[in-house]
Design a protein around this nucleic acid. Structure first.
Lengths: 125, 125
DNA sequence: CAATTAATGCAACAATGTTGCAAAAGTAAT
DNA sequence: ATTACTTTTGCAACATTGTTGCATTAATTG
């Protein structure tokens, strides 16, 4: 049977993301871990953590892929909250408590929602 | 004074985007125009068209940057409608008539909203 | 501690986006 | 139509981001 192994790289990267108030990109993680592991390993760890449901992927307004920790996901795996993408410092924050609403259209089957607001975060405004 | 010039590349790319029911990526535009102009020119044309407000940039759930025509923007430049990103055919459609609502949080200054729903579009479901 | 196999590192590649500069092409005035 | 001016283009070269194959390393299980 296939099993999951807890490696240094995986543990460190998960903690880094979980402790961060903002979502982190691959590049940011690479800089923050400084030689902890190979660039490719980071990609693979991020992929695994996402599959395991420990982190989730967010895309900022510029199209940069970032990763954020799953906080309330143990209860209910729901990422349909709003993400705030700062145009100045490029930070991405999860606004967990803000739930958007919309009236569903015609015959589209929605399985995932990505709501991103762009502007200035509290630190930059 | 700096002025704007209408070139073949610009005109063709704008028409391609405007006539498309879905948002197009740089790669898709390149394939559709087949040797109309250089790859770099497409990037630059897209940049100019965006600045001029003739098209707008959308990012799909995978982080792929796409461009869509601005239809009702002559009246009121507003891109705060929902974009639908199909997980199967990767198409991105603007659902112009669907306006999302959300209760604004604390001290964030919002200047742009990007709402993307992912799932299956009518053609794929 | 030995066996198994998941995870890593490395190298090489692919895709996407950016920049500088000389050549080409629009535009307006003559 | 020709000229002068400046935008736009093509090319080459580079930067960044993400992917894949394969041999090696290391985490877990018994």
């Amino acid at each position: 049977m296939k099993s999951v192994r807890n490696t240094t790289a995986k543990t460190e990267i998960q903690e880094l993301i979980s402790n961060s108030p903002v979502a982190l990109s691959h590049t940011e993680i690479q800089l923050a871990t400084q030689g902890l592991c190979d660039r490719v390993t980071i990609y693979r760890v991020l992929e695994r953590l996402t599959i395991e449901g420990l982190i989730h992927k967010v895309v900022n307004v510029d199209g940069v892929v970032k990763y954020a920790g799953c906080h309330s996901c143990s209860v209910k795996h729901n990422h349909n909250h709003i993400h705030f993408s700062c145009q100045k410092c490029k930070s991405v924050t999860c606004l967990e408590d803000v739930e958007p609403s919309f009236k569903l259209p015609k015959n589209y089957k929605v399985s995932e929602a990505n709501f991103t607001l762009a502007g200035l975060c509290p630190q930059c405004s």
